[in-house]
Design a protein around this nucleic acid. Structure first.
Length: 581
RNA sequence: GCCGAAUUAGUUCAGUGGUAGAACUUUACUUUCGUAAAGUAGAAACAUGGGUUCGAUUCCCAUAUUCGGCUCCA
C-alpha cells in the first residue's frame, strides 16, 4: 500500500468520525477533518461539551457506519450552491469564501447520509479501510485555524494505520518513548524536581542532576578555553534600556520578566546573555590586535513563556544557557565560525550523535526584511560567509529561508536522537547589527574606529534541553563521565567492609564518583538498586576477591561480569572518564 | 492564555457520603547473605480554600499544580 492510500483511509475515517458524531449530536457543527501523520482528526463545535468517555460509543458507531456506507461520491458544485448547502455552518462558509477568492470550485463528498465539503480524495469503498487498525485516541481543544483569537473547537483525534500490526507497533513505540520520558526518568533517577512553592517552570536540580550539569559545563568550558574563550559573569537583571538597545525588548516584548522594588528600582530579568556581555567589551578601548575577544558564560536567563506551554525541562521560565560570543574583525569571522563548527562537531561526535545529522543555513525571510535588524549589505556578506564555511567544511548546509536570528543568519545543527526525534540545539550565528547598536568599536591598524563582528555560538544550547536530550537519548544510561554515580561497591558480608572500603577509597582517590554501600541490606537488593539507578559499574567484594586479589566487575550494559585487577580497573575508569565516552 | 482530563504516604497504585488499603522507599530489631527486592514490627497520604450535608477524601464551586491538545487546511 502506498502513502496516498493510507492518507485516503485516514481521511475517509475522519468522515466516518463526523458521521458518527452527528448521529449522537445532530447539532454539532463540522469544521475540518484532515489526515495526519498518525491518523486523523476532526474539529467540531459542540453545543454541549463531550468528554473522552464518549469516545467509545462514537468509535463503535464508526464501525457500524463502515458497514452501511460504501462509496464516497464526489460532486463539483457552484459557490452559490455550496453557500446554500452549508448555510448554518460558519466554518464551512469561511472555507467556501476562501475557495471563491482563489477561484476554485467547491467539491463535496457524500457517503451514507453525510455530505461534507471536502477536497478528497477518499478510498473507493469503505471496504478498503482496515477495521482493526484504527481507534479514537483522545479529545482536545483546538482553535479554529489554530488562532487563539478564534473560537475554541473540540478536536477528536484518531489513530489509523494500514494494519493492526502497524497500530500495535506505533503504540509500543509510544510506550517506549514514555519510559524514556525525561520527566519520568528525572524523578526515578532523582535528577531534578519542581515545587509548588517555588513555582512551575522553575526546575530544582538535585545533587545528582547538578553533577551532570556541572560535568557538562566543566567539559564544554575546557574545550572552549582551548579556542580562546574566557569565562565572564553578568547579573541576572539589567535596566530596560540595555534590551531596548539590543532589540530584544521588542523581540521578546511580552516574554520579559520585570523586577521592581518598593524603593523604585526597575529592572528586566535578562532573556539572553549577549547584551550584558557587550558591556564588558565596551568597558575600555579595544585594538585590532587583541581581537578576537571571546566570552563565554553559563547562566540563567528568564523568559515569560505562555503558562500553558511550560512543562518538564523543555519549556521553563528559568533557562540555564551555555552561551558564547566572539567579537572579531571581518577577516577573522570565517576562522571563528570554523572553530565553533569544530567544537560542535567534536562534542556531538563524542556523544555518538554526529550521524544522520544535517545543517541548516538559516537565512532571512527575503520578503519581510522588517523582521530583522541591521543593514542589507551586512546580511548579504554574512550569508555569503556562512555559505563558504559550509562549502569548505563539507557541511552541505541546506538553505532555510526565514529561519535567521533577529540580528543575522546562522548555521543550525540538527540531530536525531535514539528515538528518531529531531533535535536542534547547536548554532553559530553572525551578527553585524548588535555591535553597531551598542556602538562597540576597536581601533584598526589605520587608527580608525571600526565596529567588530559578533559571532554567537551555542554548543549545548540550554542545559535544560540538553538534559532532556541526554536522558531520552540514553534512556538514563548516561556515559560514564556524566553518571552521577560511576561505580557502586558492595561488600558481600560485614566482615568484607574494611577490604571493600579500602578499594572504594583507592578508586575515589582517582576522582571517580563511588557509592560505597555497606548498609545492612541483602546484596541482591543492593545490586537491584544499582541496576535501577543505571549505575554503569558495580563491584561485589567478598571472600573470593580478597583471596585472589581480582575483582568481579558488573557492567551495566553487559550480561556477564568481567574479572579485572584493581590497577586495571583504575586505568579503565580513568580512561573512560577522560575520554568523555 | 484557551479547551479537556487528573491530583490519595517520598514513589507507583487501590478505595469510600460515616476521615482510608497495598507494594516499593523509610525507621527499629532480627538476619551476614555471592549477583535484580530476606523476615518481623513501626512511621508515613485524601493538593488548598469555600459551599451543600447531621457528617465530605468522596458531590459542587474556586485556586494551585500536573498531563494531553491548540492550522500537518475544505
Amino acid at each position: 500500500m502506498n502513502e496516498d492510500n493510507l492518507n485516503n483511509i485516514r481521511h475517509s475515517l475522519s468522515h466516518l468520525l463526523a458521521g458518527a458524531v452527528l448521529s449522537f449530536y445532530p447539532d454539532a457543527k463540522l469544521a475540518i477533518g484532515p489526515a495526519i501523520d498518525t491518523g486523523f482528526y476532526y474539529d467540531f463545535e459542540f453545543s454541549t461539551p463531550i468528554s473522552d468517555k464518549d469516545l467509545e460509543k462514537i468509535e463503535q458507531k464508526m464501525r457500524e457506519l463502515m458497514k452501511k456506507w460504501s462509496t464516497f461520491e464526489k460532486k463539483e458544485i457552484t459557490v452559490r450552491d455550496a453557500e446554500k448547502m452549508f448555510a448554518g455552518n460558519p466554518y464551512k462558509l469561511e472555507l467556501i469564501a476562501d475557495l471563491k477568492k482563489d477561484g476554485s470550485k467547491p467539491t463535496t463528498y457524500t457517503s451514507g447520509d453525510l455530505t461534507d465539503l471536502c477536497a478528497g480524495p477518499h478510498v473507493a469503498s469503505t471496504k478498503e479501510i482496515p477495521k482493526d487498525a484504527f481507534k479514537l485516541e483522545r479529545i482536545a481543544g483546538a482553535y479554529w485555524r489554530g488562532d487563539e483569537k478564534n473560537k475554541m473547537l473540540t478536536r477528536i483525534y484518531g489513530l489509523a494505520f494500514e494494519s493492526k500490526e502497524d497500530l500495535t507497533a506505533y503504540e509500543l513505540q509510544q510506550k517506549e518513548a514514555e519510559k524514556r520520558d525525561h520527566r519520568r526518568l528525572g524523578k526515578e533517577l532523582d535528577l531534578f524536581c519542581f515545587s509548588d512553592l517555588v513555582g512551575p517552570g522553575l526546575p530544582l536540580y538535585t545533587p545528582k542532576g547538578t553533577i551532570i550539569i556541572d560535568e557538562l559545563q566543566k567539559y564544554i568550558e575546557s574545550v572552549c578555553r582551548k579556542y580562546g574563550f574566557e569565562k565572564v559573569k553578568t547579573p541576572h537583571m539589567a535596566k530596560r534600556i540595555l534590551f531596548e538597545t539590543s532589540g530584544h525588548a521588542a523581540k521578546f516584548a511580552d516574554e520579559l520578566f520585570a523586577v521592581t522594588s518598593p524603593k523604585g528600582h526597575q529592572f528586566i530579568l535578562k532573556p539572553v546573555q549577549c547584551p550584558a556581555q557587550t558591556q564588558i567589551y565596551a568597558s575600555r578601548i579595544r585594538t585590532y590586535k587583541e581581537l578576537p575577544i571571546r566570552y563565554m558564560e553559563s547562566d540563567r536567563q528568564y523568559r515569560a513563556e505562555k503558562t500553558g506551554e511550560v512543562g518538564g525541562l523543555n519549556r521553563v521560565y528559568a533557562i540555564t544557557c551555555e552561551d558564547g560570543h566572539s567579537f572579531c574583525r571581518v577577516d577573522q569571522v570565517k576562522q571563528e565560525v570554523v572553530n565553533m563548527v569544530n567544537i560542535i562537531r567534536d562534542f556531538y561526535t563524542s556523544l555518538g550523535l554526529w550521524k544522520n545529522n544535517w545543517v541548516s543555513l538559516s537565512v532571512r525571510d527575503y520578503a519581510h526584511p522588517e523582521k530583522y535588524i541591521g543593514d542589507t549589505k551586512d546580511w548579504d556578506l554574512c550569508e555569503k560567509m556562512l555559505q563558504e564555511v559550509s562549502d569548505e567544511m563539507g557541511l552541505n548546509a541546506k538553505k532555510c529561508e526565514g529561519e535567521a536570528a533577529l540580528y543575522g543568519p546562522k548555521l543550525d545543527f540538527m540531530f536525531k536522537d535514539a528515538m528518531g526525534k529531531e533535535i536542534q540545539i547547536p548554532t553559530v550565528q553572525l551578527d553585524f547589527a548588535t555591535p553597531k547598536r551598542f556602538n562597540l568599536t576597536y581601533i584598526d591598524n589605520m587608527g580608525k574606529e571600526v565596529n567588530p563582528v559578533m559571532v554567537h555560538r551555542a554548543v549545548l544550547g540550554s542545559y535544560e534541553r540538553f538534559l532532556v536530550l541526554l536522558i531520552e537519548h540514553f534512556a538514563g544510561n548516561f556515559p560514564v563521565w556524566l553518571s552521577p554515580v560511576q561505580i557502586k561497591i558492595i561488600p558481600v558480608r560485614e566482615n568484607h567492609n574494611d577490604y571493600a572500603k579500602k578499594i572504594a577509597d583507592e578508586i575515589k582517590a582517582q576522582g571517580v564518583r563511588v557509592d560505597f554501600d555497606n548498609t545492612d541490606e541483602g546484596m541482591g537488593k543492593k545490586i537491584r538498586a544499582g541496576k535501577v539507578n543505571k549505575v554503569p559499574y558495580m563491584l561485589v567484594i567478598g571472600d573470593k576477591e580478597i583471596e585472589f586479589g581480582e575483582l568481579a566487575l558488573e557492567i551495566r550494559d553487559g550480561a556477564k561480569q568481567e574479572k579485572i585487577t584493581l590497577e586495571k580497573l583504575k586505568t579503565k575508569l580513568q580512561k573512560e572518564i577522560s575520554e568523555r565516552l
